[in-house]
Design a protein around this nucleic acid. Structure first.
Lengths: 193, 193
DNA sequence: GCGGAAGTTCAAGGAGCCTTGAACCCCTTG
DNA sequence: CAAGGGGTTCAAGGCTCCTTGAACTTCCGC
């Protein structure tokens, strides 16, 4: 349900399919699809793309490889993998023989997204509810007419309802996706690293 | 679940409570709360604020009043009410005796949000699914290794799952909020216009 | 019809987020 | 221990979306 840079009025424009120079089209398509989804949920487009290449390849990759494959700058890759690492969806390993780090995708991207969403959304709606309740209190204290008070209360009720709907969604999403997560996990990366 | 200008990393910062000069604090609080919610769902913060004042006041207001109360420019108000009108959550009425339009809030903001979300999200996820399927087709055609194909298929499965979860959410949200909508409606605006 | 207030449109300006690129640091290897 | 690739950081720039402000149009009332 969210949206970021996803406008209601005109064309929905998803990120251009071009920016991946040397990638086979199918891979670029899949990678960008993940990027779009991730962006949709409030993360950065390129965080999704990085995870996606790593996941699709199955092997581990160096920062330099990521730069080349995705057409990103050195600095960008550094920051992106740092985030992904922090969230535990990518691990960093030191390859013997080479002086470079290698990165590998964990399969729990979805879990991570759900967790973050949950925290974020819950905090948000809680805040809204608090504000509306505060408003109601202040309004009541300053002797606002009963009609207006009634309206305020209805708004507050809406917030409560929204919170419940959200909770239900997160629960069903968990149940619903957990089956898929199992599936994702069982092909368990036999990464030829 | 969406987010717009709602970052994961640092402080969640909601819009500053200041920009409403002459409004009593409770009103400003409530109005901004609505603004934040609406923005969260991908609309403009000020679209929410405009609807909110109109709703809370119960009376109809002129564009000039809206400008003053919310601290917006003439042009902004014009465009904002135009959008709200188009969505049917605000109606424009001509007041006899005055040469100015008056605006009044309809109570179906929530319905409107749900409808727009539904269209938008559905289109989005459908597009993602299509892309992933296309990717899979192309990959299969160009003889990609079975391991990679398997990963791609898992991604596609995820998209399908997400779509289902979304549909469930929209349904529960409708059921869940319809009760509230009834409540909202029955205090039916006795607008002293 | 005219005068003028109300409303609309749109180019220019502003704000926020993301990425780049270069300076800096670290750490391995020879 | 010196050399140099790899990684990190961060200020500057780019981009996108939103708002402003002013020219332009519309419409009411006299």
């Amino acid at each position: 349900m969210p949206a970021k840079g996803y406008s209601w009025s005109d064309a929905p424009r998803l990120a251009a399919p071009d920016p991946a120079p040397g990638l086979p089209r199918w891979e670029a398509l899949a990678i960008d699809a993940v990027g779009n989804v991730i962006e949709f949920w409030g993360f950065k487009h390129n965080q999704g793309r990085v995870w996606a290449v790593l996941y699709l390849r199955g092997t581990s990759m160096t920062a330099t490889q990521l730069e080349e494959e995705l057409g990103l700058s050195k600095g960008a890759v550094s920051m992106l993998v740092r985030d992904l690492e922090r969230w535990g969806v990518v691990v960093r390993i030191r390859q013997p023989g080479t002086g470079a780090w290698h990165f590998r995708a964990e399969t729990d991207l979805v879990q991570m997204v759900r967790r973050v969403i949950q925290e974020r959304e819950t905090a948000f709606i809680t805040r809204i509810r608090a504000d509306l309740e505060e408003a109601r209190r202040l309004a009541a204290a300053s002797g606002v007419g009963r009609e207006r008070l009634a309206r305020l209360e209805k708004l507050a009720a809406l917030a409560v309802g929204a919170e419940r709907a959200l909770r239900i969604f997160l629960r069903t999403a968990r149940v619903d996706l957990s089956t898929l997560l199992v599936a994702l996990g069982e092909g368990k990366l036999r990464s030829r690293t």
